[in-house]
């Protein structure tokens, strides 16, 4: 996957030089070893800034809504699904986009790497196809990337872009994992009070910085309900009920639309696995409506359509 960088730069340069797009949205190398920064490039000569690594974990579809230009965008499997969601939800037009698809073998979780070295500072990271070598003061360690993938990448069933105009490499094999929802099933087994305790504990450190919401491509409402001032729907303090209200509503607003790209979890500054909220809803959308978000630009999301055979066992 690390060879993708060269190909991305080549494609981007060509697209800009031939004026087939006005701009490219991609990643540039971060100022820290395990980070990258989303970047917008407008001039062909600046395309050498574009970069690819196993730390391109943010979802670039987040930068599309309401843009008017013709855009070249780099898209992993999950990004491409969120682009599809945007197209379905009229946030961007298919014709505006030139999707540079990246067959993805998974993003490495920077926090897992950091806990591997017990919070010591990683000062250098060198990547090969399979391995990652990290160096810092007094340590050097080489690990297999596959052992340190983001949780959502471990269970990902759509590593290849679902829509694309060009690919930067050969398609990768999709996982045949029959069941990616083991963690959700465990929670489903819990009694209501145990569930409540689990979720209350999960968010006890939340600072309501909204990084999870803002890293999410789905959260493009002009004004989020938590930011409404008149009427004000929810308090702004870190009162546990208010914080829980935010998390529950955020998650439910993503129901049937979430691609489990993991950007929310990666963005959280206090390491909350906010995906535990959305994953149950993804499982329900799949099991009850046969829907996985963003696999097609034709299909409306399950909660804004009605089919006579929709699941209705909960109604008596």
């Amino acid at each position: 996957m690390i060879a993708y960088g060269e190909k991305i730069r080549e494609i981007a340069k060509k697209l800009l030089a031939e004026e087939r797009v006005d701009l490219i949205i991609g990643f540039k190398q971060g100022t820290l070893p395990l980070m990258t920064e989303p970047v917008m490039i407008k001039e062909p000569e600046k395309t050498d800034q574009l970069y690819w690594s196993s730390f391109c974990s943010m979802n670039l579809a987040n930068y599309l809504p309401k843009r008017k230009e013709k855009i070249g965008i780099i898209a992993k499997g999950c990004d491409s699904r969120n682009i599809a969601v945007h197209i379905v939800e009229n946030q961007i037009q298919r014709e505006q986009l030139y999707i540079i698809g990246v067959p993805c073998t998974g993003m490495v979780d920077r926090r897992k790497i950091q806990s591997l070295v017990d919070g010591k500072e990683v000062r250098e990271a060198i990547e090969s196809d399979e391995e990652l070598t990290i160096k810092g003061n007094g340590f050097e360690q080489t690990v297999k990337k596959i052992d340190y993938l983001q949780d959502n990448c471990i269970t990902c069933m759509h590593r290849n872009p679902v829509i694309h105009d060009e690919l930067v490499g050969d398609l990768v094999e999709e996982r045949k994992d029959p069941d990616p929802y083991d963690d959700v099933k465990e929670i489903e087994e819990l009694a209501p009070n145990e569930k409540w305790e689990l979720y209350s504990n999960l968010i006890k450190d939340c600072t309501r910085c909204y990084a999870c919401r803002n890293a999410c491509p789905l959260c493009y409402c002009p004004t989020c309900f938590v930011d409404e001032a008149d009427p004000q729907w929810v308090g702004k303090s870190i009162d546990p009920t208010d914080t829980m209200t935010f998390h529950i509503l955020r998650a439910f607003h993503c129901a049937g639309r979430c691609t489990d790209c993991g950007a929310c979890q990666q963005a959280c500054p206090v390491d909350i696995n906010v995906r535990l909220f959305t994953r149950k809803l993804n499982k329900d959308a799949l099991e009850l409506y046969g829907c996985e978000a963003g696999l097609s630009i034709e299909e409306r999301p399950p909660l804004d359509t009605y089919q006579p055979d929709d699941y209705d066992k909960f109604i008596r």
């Binding site: 819990l190 209501p192 409540w196 979720y199 109604i315 008596r316």
Partner: peptide, 13 residues
């Protein structure tokens, strides 16, 4: 989430 199922009722009448 842990909301007691007893509190949630859907009906079509």
């Amino acid at each position: 989430m842990g909301i007691e199922p007893e509190r949630l009722h859907f009906s079509w009448i």
